[in-house]
Amino acid sequence: MQRVFIYGSCVTRDGVELWPDYGLELAGYVARQSLISAVAPSRPNDFDTSTISSPFQRRMAEGDIRGNVVAKLTSNPDDIDLILWDLTDERLGVYRVPSGGYVSRVVDYTTGIYKGRPALDTPIRIGTNEHRTLWEQALVEFLASLENSRVRDRLVLNAMPWALHDEEGASTRTTANDPEAFNAVLAEYSAIAERHGVRIARPDVQRIRGAREHQWGAAPFHYTQDSYRASLDAILQVL
């Protein structure tokens, strides 16, 4: 079994139940942390995470604030055989924190979690020139940290696109989530990562379908079982 650390989102995590068929086992998981916030942590005293009721969501928010994923990936490199990374939790961009650093907007810090002054500024949205520049700079720093710990060659980007349609052919687009727009950004950012030497697993898009009865509800990033298998097939092909 290969021991896998997921840095990403439910896009990769929700397929874990199929992993034994592919010789994989879960060694760790960090979600809701932008690459930008991962390398540019914020000051924990500016935040109060006690209002987050879900223990998982609280841990992820605290990790995002502190930018803890790099340490988790490099502190015990002998415990990880493969790092699977996906970009879905980049979808809302980041906030620049006035006292320094960044936080990911996939965590809603504006609901009383952020206590600093002044208030969080205008979001830096994914796909903008500012976000793209910050993200590529963060990528270079991220890869250097992995290289220093000799785990860079274990990194694979799971470039699983959002589903355009569900298993019955209905559109998955909603007012909150536009899969075509996200997939265009995913392709662009994946290409940036590839130029920096990151291996990319691109599944067969014809097999990618949303699941109406997914355990977390219908969304372009909640898939059918065969979609997760398509992703895993692409990952094994890269390996």
Rank of each mutant, 00 (worst) to 15 (best):
108 D>T: 13
94 V>K: 00
75 S>Q: 15
179 P>V: 13
58 R>K: 15
17 E>P: 00
151 V>Y: 06
174 T>M: 07
186 L>P: 10
228 Y>M: 04
51 T>K: 14
21 D>G: 05
173 R>T: 14
227 S>L: 08
84 L>S: 11
139 L>T: 05
182 F>Q: 05
68 N>A: 14
195 R>P: 02
121 D>I: 03
146 L>P: 03
47 F>C: 09
239 L>N: 00
9 S>Y: 10
222 H>N: 12
222 H>Q: 03
50 S>M: 03
117 R>V: 09
144 A>H: 09
189 Y>W: 05
179 P>T: 12
21 D>Y: 08
198 V>Y: 02
191 A>L: 04
67 G>R: 07
21 D>H: 14
136 E>H: 09
87 L>R: 05
13 R>L: 11
36 I>H: 06
177 N>W: 15
98 P>A: 07
51 T>G: 11
40 A>Q: 13
178 D>Y: 12
208 I>R: 02
219 A>Q: 04
65 I>M: 10
8 G>L: 06
88 T>E: 14
175 T>V: 13
162 W>E: 04
130 E>T: 15
224 T>E: 14
25 E>T: 15
183 N>T: 13
86 D>P: 05
65 I>H: 08
114 Y>G: 10
150 R>T: 07
209 R>S: 06
144 A>E: 13
123 P>A: 01
116 G>D: 06
5 F>G: 01
217 G>D: 05
129 N>Q: 14
44 P>S: 08
11 V>N: 01
182 F>A: 06
110 T>N: 10
159 A>I: 01
82 L>P: 10
128 T>W: 08
49 T>G: 09
19 W>V: 12
222 H>M: 04
223 Y>G: 02
56 F>Y: 15
105 R>F: 06
114 Y>W: 07
153 D>F: 00
236 L>I: 13
34 S>G: 06
3 R>V: 10
55 P>W: 09
217 G>H: 09
94 V>E: 00
153 D>H: 10
197 G>C: 04
14 D>S: 13
51 T>E: 08
144 A>M: 10
115 K>I: 07
75 S>D: 15
91 R>E: 00
155 L>C: 05
98 P>V: 09
111 T>R: 15
135 W>V: 00
119 A>L: 08
83 I>V: 15
98 P>W: 05
63 G>W: 14
122 T>N: 03
126 I>V: 14
22 Y>F: 14
14 D>V: 07
73 L>S: 12
57 Q>C: 08
239 L>Q: 02
228 Y>C: 04
46 D>Y: 09
41 P>M: 13
20 P>K: 14
211 A>G: 03
80 I>F: 01
181 A>H: 15
166 D>S: 13
230 A>L: 05
144 A>V: 10
235 I>F: 01
77 P>K: 12
112 G>V: 04
167 E>W: 12
55 P>R: 11
120 L>Q: 07
223 Y>M: 04
73 L>P: 07
166 D>P: 10
127 G>A: 04
128 T>K: 08
64 D>S: 10
149 S>N: 08
130 E>S: 04
121 D>V: 03
235 I>K: 00
62 E>T: 07
45 N>W: 11
174 T>R: 12
35 L>H: 01
83 I>F: 13
96 R>M: 06
85 W>S: 11
171 S>K: 06
232 L>N: 04
67 G>P: 06
41 P>Q: 11
196 H>C: 00
122 T>D: 02
9 S>I: 09
97 V>Y: 05
